[in-house]
Design a protein around this nucleic acid. Structure first.
Lengths: 226, 226
DNA sequence: TTTTATTGTTCTGTCTGACAGAACATCGTT
DNA sequence: AACGATGTTCTGTCAGACAGAACAATAAAA
């Protein structure tokens, strides 16, 4: 199951991965179906997850995510200085371009939308924070992939340009641009993205968004990461 | 190491527990010191934690918490309907009493402050969200313990009263009161707490705070948990 | 109410995965 | 250049973890 990791740990984390929406609790049977693990195996793994606060067992037996995830998630999130830096940037980008603005990071073999400022226009590219999307589709996915994997065929071009564009890849009516936010020592921290209705977010608008996003990304790098 | 759980899983979670503040990265040596694990053991466990996004390895080798924790932490947090329910309650309690108001849940053998509205007064009981505190000190700790462990000597009294009080237990100048928020089927969900300067938060003020907090808790139970 | 089906809990033999700890490699300091 | 500190790789041993059966409790159907 594991290649150079520890199989039992990966089983335990696969259990946590079963939880997908808030307000959710899951019975043992559902976890067994989703993970393919035996119930006795799950129960034993859950003893450890509960003891560290990652899961909680309800009185009716259903499992729920536990408070440790909130605490560690808060630690992680604070590293990006959410309240003081990135969110205002997303607001400015959204207002300046009229489209939605987001910040994505890699999450295993997917990307996750950490923060979002949706456009105020009635017709807009709307997504919720926390959503996970594939790496092989969308400007943010290509950019993240390019900065993670030097052997990716698009890496050289994307790094040379310092942006990625996608037209209708995930949704036929959507266009998006993504620029990198770099930290200390040019470490890739995440993707700053503007996305909108393809007919409105045309080439001229995209070029303007790229320019604005690159400027905001440069300022973020200086302000947050030195 | 483990009693009925899985030792490898608990080792992995012990690694995650090493991270205590935001902006933090930890070198291998520090994790080995904090956990008492061998470096080779840590490295193997970290392969699994990285592959699921719980950790990230920086180019200089240091470890950081990864985006999965944010995602799962957001799922957990949303279960409490933060934005729509509990936070306004804390604001009202704080404004009505003039003291700080918080919401605590159990986190293993500690309690964690999930949400907080600090008093606007210059002299106030100030804490940050996310802080972990012991169960054996403070009104919230006693209340949580009473609702978790029927054999606790204080359980009967606290449940009969529907509140706990502490005077100078954790900090000699602080007084606090805690009332339970119950969910479906009277399941204990967390502690609603008001805390402040002991000389100002006197018996009359505490009694008033208890009354207000019980009313808010009852309303929360109806609104959120049916 | 009884019977059947479903879901959760407990147990244990087997074997292989994980660990301890040494050896080695790399980097930083003197 | 030498030494110390930190990170990486390797492997023999055995005890822990799993698979899966049996049992218990609960829910649904007859």
């Amino acid at each position: 199951m594991s290649d150079k990791g520890v199989a039992a740990v990966e089983r335990a984390l696969a259990i946590l991965d079963c939880f997908e929406s808030d307000q959710e609790s899951l019975p043992l049977k559902t976890i067994a179906q989703k993970t393919g693990l035996y119930k006795s195996t799950i129960l034993r793994l859950c003893v450890s997850l509960e003891s560290y606060g990652y899961l909680r067992r309800r009185e009716d037996g259903d499992f729920q995510l536990g408070p440790t995830l909130w605490r560690l998630g808060a630690l992680y999130r604070n590293r990006f200085d959410v309240a003081t830096h990135i969110r205002p940037v997303l607001k400015r980008l959204s207002e300046a371009t009229g489209e939605s603005a987001s910040f994505y990071v890699r999450d295993g073999d997917a990307r996750i939308c950490l923060m979002r400022h949706n456009s105020s226009q009635a017709i807009r590219h709307h997504l919720e924070e926390g959503v996970r999307l594939p790496l092989n589709l969308g400007a943010a996915g290509h950019l993240i992939q390019a900065y993670s994997d030097a052997s990716d065929p698009k890496t050289q071009e994307i790094k040379a340009n310092s942006y990625a564009i996608s037209l209708g890849e995930r949704d036929p009516n959507t266009a998006s641009i993504a620029v990198p936010v770099l930290g200390r020592g040019d470490a890739f921290m995440g993707a700053l993205v503007v996305s909108g209705l393809r007919t409105r977010f045309d080439e001229e608008a995209r070029q303007k968004a790229i320019t604005l996003a690159l400027e905001e990304a440069r300022r973020l790098s200086q302000d947050i990461y030195g």
